[in-house]
Design a protein around this nucleic acid. Structure first.
Lengths: 63, 63
DNA sequence: TTCGAATGTCTAGTACCCTTTACATCAGAT
DNA sequence: ATCTGATGTAAAGGGTACTAGACATTCGAA
């Protein structure tokens, strides 16, 4: 899975730490997801989608 | 997270085994997800949504 | 030049996703 | 009464998601 997290975050001028805090996960988790080391759990994907106000499918893409 | 898998499967008259085969997971995984023992991984959620032809958000719901 | 914020990575540990194998129950058909 | 398909659950094991803590690099600002 690929994702648009880094771009969405840049559009809002948020640091990885800012995003992590809002999602209530560690900064390392945000970094790992952005750099493609692993995919988020489904509940975390829902929180991400809700935070950015868009469907999961427009943030995460099958590869 | 709750989900509508059991209903969607019933609408199509598929057994858990039928669904598992199409998703390329074990029957026990389908059962565990349906009975709420755990949530699917994000990649599996994508396969489920694709199979049923609807967005992830209309199959899985935050509780 | 020095400092701090931001990012990337590593390790060790915990918890969860998913597997195979196995067993139990139930309903419907023979 | 027996058989079979469908479902639920359990144990053990491998791989992944997430944690805290630590360290290195880069870059813009003081």
């Amino acid at each position: 899975m690929k994702n648009r997290l880094k771009v969405l975050r840049a559009e809002r001028d948020w640091s990885q730490e800012d995003l992590a805090r809002q999602l209530e996960v560690s900064r390392q988790s945000v970094n790992a997801i952005e750099t493609g080391r692993y995919d988020p759990s489904l509940p975390l994907a829902f929180r991400i989608a809700e935070l950015f106000g868009m469907p999961i499918e427009s943030i995460f893409l099958r590869d």
